Amino acid sequence: MRYWLYKSEPATWSWDQQKEKGAAGEEWTGVRNYQARNFMREMSVGDRGFFYHSNEGKEIVGIVEVVKEAHPDSTADDAKWECVDIKAVMDVPKPVSLEQVKAEPKLKDMVLVNNSRLSVQPVTEAEFAYVCELAGVDPEKAMKG
């Protein structure tokens, strides 16, 4: 299993909207960055990730799971753009802000700290577990696929 972070502006697609999609999940559309698209091509069903509100809030607010591997993005005019489908798994009791992440020495190498503009990014297993702890989530529960 691998771990990821998905960024969305809450005014465009919020955590509450993601949760409303239930077990079927929703396409993670609109990514027009090659590196982010390539990360989605690496994803497998069952991979877990953080749902991050960008711009407003700038915080990790939930945990998601990949339910469908990379396929053509239904919002793209060009077949080179792909997406995965993700579903909401759980809220985090204590959202983790970008400032908190940046202040944690254990997270100094996290992509969110070093390339905060990338909309889909990898998270190491150790980073995922530590952020879960900060968020008040049992890492073992959050990491089970």
Rank of each mutant, 00 (worst) to 15 (best):
D109I: 00
E42T: 14
D109L: 03
Q18C: 11
K108V: 01
V84S: 08
H53I: 08
R2D: 12
L134D: 05
I86V: 15
K87E: 00
T75M: 12
Y34N: 11
D78S: 11
F39M: 10
C132L: 03
W15E: 04
A88Y: 08
S44R: 15
Q121R: 09
V66N: 02
D109K: 15
V96T: 02
G46F: 02
W15T: 04
M43F: 02
A135G: 13
K102E: 04
F51C: 07
A36P: 09
G62E: 03
L107D: 03
A79R: 09
R37H: 05
K141G: 00
E42M: 14
K21N: 10
G57Q: 09
V67P: 11
A23T: 11
V45I: 13
W4S: 11
L98V: 09
C83S: 11
D138F: 06
N38P: 06
L118I: 12
V111C: 06
E42V: 00
E9W: 09
D78E: 13
A103R: 13
L112N: 08
L112T: 06
D78R: 14
P93W: 11
E104D: 15
V67W: 10
F128N: 10
S14M: 01
Q35R: 14
K58N: 14
R48D: 03
A23N: 13
D73I: 03
A70P: 01
V120P: 03
E133T: 15
I86G: 06
S54T: 14
F128K: 11
H71E: 06
P105S: 01
A11N: 12
N33L: 06
K19S: 03
A76T: 03
Y6Q: 06
F39K: 02
T29K: 12
G49R: 07
A24W: 00
Y6G: 13
P105N: 07
N33R: 09
W4F: 15
G136L: 05
M43A: 15
Y6R: 01
W28Y: 09
W13V: 00
V101D: 04
G22C: 07
W13Q: 02
P105L: 01
C132P: 04
A79I: 00
D138M: 10
V131S: 02
E99S: 13
V120H: 07
K21I: 00
A76Y: 08
G22L: 06
P10N: 05
W4D: 02
L98K: 14
F50Y: 10
E127R: 08
S74K: 15
R117T: 07
E20K: 15
P139K: 13
D138T: 12
E125N: 08
E140I: 01
A88H: 15
M1L: 07
S54G: 06
A88Q: 09
A103D: 10
A23W: 04
V61M: 01
L134F: 06
G62R: 07
K87T: 03
D91Y: 05
A103Q: 12
T75P: 04
V101P: 05
A135I: 06
M143R: 14
W13L: 12
E20Y: 01
W4K: 08
P105F: 04
D78P: 07
G46Y: 02
R41M: 12
A129H: 10
I60P: 04
M110F: 11
Q100L: 10
E59R: 15
Y130R: 07
I86M: 14
A11I: 00
M90A: 14
V111W: 03
V66I: 13
W81Q: 08
S8Q: 08
G62S: 05
Y3G: 04
